[in-house]
């Protein structure tokens, strides 16, 4: 069936009229803060207690915007006759956000969980040099890092929790094996040991 002449024109009018009655999508940003999703890439925070100055982040950074200075310290032996140990001490950690392209590779590559995304984005400056955030400022950003979002319902168990649970189960099995001979002497004892570890433990 051929469309009625002018039905397209009427459809167009209907679309604009319907849009007029709907809620607008404008965000009134400076007056109302935006509702940012978790994992928003606003600024990078440094948890410097975790940093070992391995330099992986600085080396992987595609635009070379991470500056790290460090020196080596020697820790005297803990026990008499023991070996002295050396470790790196962080002197300077800076990220130049005028160069950063927010790829997040440094955060991905950090093996010690020292770098995190924070959703804060209001750190514009009038001088480009002020966009180089030194370690104290990067440490301050850590307070704005949100807790990681919950796992999806069907997601795999986190590795740390899986390892802890396995250890706990092994321990419980060993205890049960020890208790078993003592239990077998009594005929009216409980049928078996109760599970000492909640399988959901650590995920809640």
């Amino acid at each position: 069936m051929a469309p009625i002449p002018g039905s397209g024109l009427a459809k167009g009018l209907a679309v604009t009229l319907r849009t007029m009655t709907k809620k607008t999508v404008t965000e009134q940003y400076p007056d109302v803060q935006p509702d940012l999703p978790p994992r928003t890439r606003g600024v990078i925070g440094l948890f410097e207690e975790n940093c070992t100055v391995c330099m992986l982040c600085a080396r992987e950074c595609p635009d070379w915007c991470i500056y790290i200075d460090s020196h080596k310290e020697t820790i005297p032996a803990a026990t008499p006759g023991g070996r002295e140990r050396s470790r790196n001490v962080l002197d300077r950690f800076a990220i130049d956000f005028s160069l950063c392209m927010y790829c997040g590779i440094c955060i991905e590559v950090c093996p010690f969980d020292a770098l995190f995304w924070s959703p804060e984005f209001e750190y514009a400056e009038t001088d480009i040099r002020d966009l180089t955030h030194e370690r104290d400022k990067l440490r301050e950003w850590m307070w704005t890092v949100p807790a990681p979002p919950a796992l999806d319902p069907g997601a795999e168990e986190p590795k740390e929790i899986a390892a802890a649970r396995k250890t706990a189960e092994k321990l419980a099995a060993a205890q049960a094996a020890q208790a078993a001979p003592a239990e077998s002497a009594k005929p009216t004892g409980p049928t078996g040991p109760t599970e000492p570890v909640d399988p959901q433990g650590g995920q809640s």
């Binding site: 007029m20 607008t24 999508v25 404008t26 009134q28």
Partner: peptide, 13 residues
């Protein structure tokens, strides 16, 4: 205002 709302915007505020 009408044009803004027909385009899903707020217009002058």
């Amino acid at each position: 205002k009408v044009m803004a709302h027909m385009q899903g915007r707020l217009g002058p505020m």
